[in-house]
Nucleic acid binder design. Structure first.
Lengths: 357, 357
DNA sequence: ATATTTAACGAAAACGTTTTCGTGTTAACA
DNA sequence: TGTTAACACGAAAACGTTTTCGTTAAATAT
């Protein structure tokens, strides 16, 4: 079992100093042709690679970015990670992942754990519990420590940082418009409780689209699901609730749901109730995941472009990290204004499938 | 913007030495009650937390484990990550994620990047391209450097390390037995090409189950999908192929598919061909993901318990890491045998849903 | 009163780098 | 021949810890 070789060992072996080895390997012309050759050959032979940890300590930067998300077994979030990893990798960074599991305290613990030198910056999406508590001190604390944050999807005004969001509002508007164009007269909304910002925005988009078309929203046509219960494992509850909803509103001919699961469940229930999709009922969901693609009938959805969100987030973060670098390298600390915080909006797109006409 | 405070700064501020501060914070009784109090109070006030990188360098261990997987937007893999993260977190470790994207070279690059000090050990699943090439030198190289590896799911005999695998073979046997019990006479298999070990094992299980029941496998009833093409984005190709398959074998009354997608596609195609599920055709898939749960009809599947796989893998790895520790701490290097490599088999379980009788 | 223990702290090394600043040798120059 | 440049290299500091080994002064024992 050969431990990785270090500069010191190379130096000893070749009877030169550590500094000489270091310089030779970086092709410093301070070192003679001869010894450079010799050292490089030796290093190659023993497959020398500088130790990342030592470099991190010396440079006071780790070249890794921390991802902090509520959940990983989730199409949207894993897509975002893929995006982040892609650009991180391309730009020479690693990613380290923490899961808050939608818990406030786990979010804090993870954050503090990573903030103690392990990462240069965060890309994160806020946990539900944190959104409920509206306690964002930990975000501001780490920002004050000089660790930049980029928030995506679930963002919040109380924290000053770069943000990348989906255009939830307009996505919802587009979806409802589509249903209207397709001839729907009574469009229902299946949504979550209001404290999740994205749910709220999508709801607002729904209302806006109706009003723009001269339709007065009917509160009976809005179903708010309490997602404090673990819906994934309580599917029956969800379906019963939706069934009730359909039965008490037999006039519904269109459904806009704020996520895939609600949409697919709605289709399932509707078909059990004897409705034909898309003839009797048209359905549009949000989030273009596996479910939408493979449901029968396949589901028309508002796509969020998760990968793009991840890529943009990572780029924003790394840009800022490297801007900081060149800043401190400036001879004249001429107080050049830092780049303002950016709120980047990723446009949604409607992907038409079988659940609409 | 307050940078994180260091021992040195505390020492300066309180006019003591760095060593004193360090000792006081670890409650060493070398330091007097008084100064300990003073130092701890000050440290708390300024929210001192030791710098992880410095600790890593000093201790020559990072307390983080590297995950290297082919793909992250994938129910099984993300479930495994969740499992790993759970026990990692519980046992004081972080996880850093690399994606090979099924590519041999990306796997190597990622591996080398992380192996240079960033992590203490790997949990990984081999990329398809690597399996095809059968080139495993990079795994053995990092193991030789003293970095332990735990492989899961896609494993290989050529590398000596702990392994956690799904009992693919018996899972397949169970599934086929189930179909037989349910009265199927002509059970088809939809599988992948043979080089992916899991596909091969599931195929073998299928064959075994038939033979155990005195049925001679019919090669016409086996459909091998070439997954070198990106199936997810070529659904139509897949469906056409399956449709052909059904048409030329109208006697099929049961289908065992080696993954969710194939199973769901088979159901979709079958229904278009006018077959009733489960009356005319029963279907069982492998991998219990979102698709199985939410398909209509919902799919009976062989569950792989991804989270458990992740948890076991992480435990194996950390056990080995910490065993190494205590080993080097031994006064008597009494050559105690290292723990042999473990191959842990996670049993599968059939989850019955609507696609079987 | 002297010797020895104990208490309380500091100096320094080590982990593996990079980089600044010397320093000695040789070659070029006046 | 004496002065200066250029060349090739080494020593040491720094990043932030922990830990071993002194060291000093006070307290205890003889």
């Amino acid at each position: 079992m050969k431990r990785k070789i270090t500069l010191k060992q190379i130096a000893k072996e070749l009877d030169v100093s550590v500094s000489t080895v270091s310089k030779a390997l970086s092709n410093s012309k301070e070192i003679s042709e001869d010894t450079t050759q010799k050292i490089q050959a030796f290093a190659k032979l023993y497959n020398y690679k500088p130790n990342n940890i030592a470099l991190s300590l010396k440079n006071r930067k780790t070249k890794t970015i921390g991802i902090l998300i509520p959940e990983i077994v989730h199409h949207f979030f894993s897509t975002v990670i893929r995006g982040i990893e892609r650009v991180a990798n391309r730009r020479g960074y690693n990613v380290i992942v923490g899961l808050s599991n939608e818990s406030f305290t786990k979010e804090i613990i993870n954050m503090e754990m990573l903030a103690n030198g392990s990462i240069d910056g965060f890309v994160l999406s806020i946990s539900k519990e944190t959104l409920l508590k509206q306690d964002y001190h930990h975000f501001n604390a780490t920002i004050n420590q000089g660790i930049p944050i980029v928030m995506f999807d679930r963002v919040v005004n109380e924290v000053d940082c770069d943000k990348v969001i989906v255009d939830d509002f307009n996505g919802a508007v587009k979806a409802v418009n589509k249903l209207l164009e397709n001839g729907c007269k009574n469009i229902a909304l299946i949504t979550t409780m209001d404290y999740v910002s994205v749910g709220k925005l999508r709801t607002q988009g729904y209302l806006e689209a109706l009003q723009n078309n001269g339709i007065i929203p009917d509160s009976n046509l809005i179903l708010k699901i309490d997602d404090s219960l673990d819906v994934e494992n309580n599917l029956d509850v969800l379906e019963i609730e939706i069934a009730q909803f359909f039965k008490s509103n037999p006039n519904i001919d269109g459904v806009f749901a704020v996520n895939e699961l609600y949409a697919v469940s709605a289709m399932k229930v509707a078909r059990k109730l004897g409705l034909k999709i898309p003839d009797d009922l048209q359905v549009i969901g949000f989030t273009d995941g596996v479910l939408s693609k493979h449901a029968t009938p396949s589901l028309t959805t508002v796509s969020q472009h998760g990968q793009k969100i991840g890529e943009q987030s990572a780029n924003l973060l790394i840009d800022r990290l490297e801007a900081e670098d060149s800043e401190t390298e400036q001879y004249f600390t001429n107080n050049e204004k830092k780049r303002d915080f950016i709120k980047m909006v990723i446009e949604t797109e409607i992907i038409e499938r079988e659940s609409t006409k």
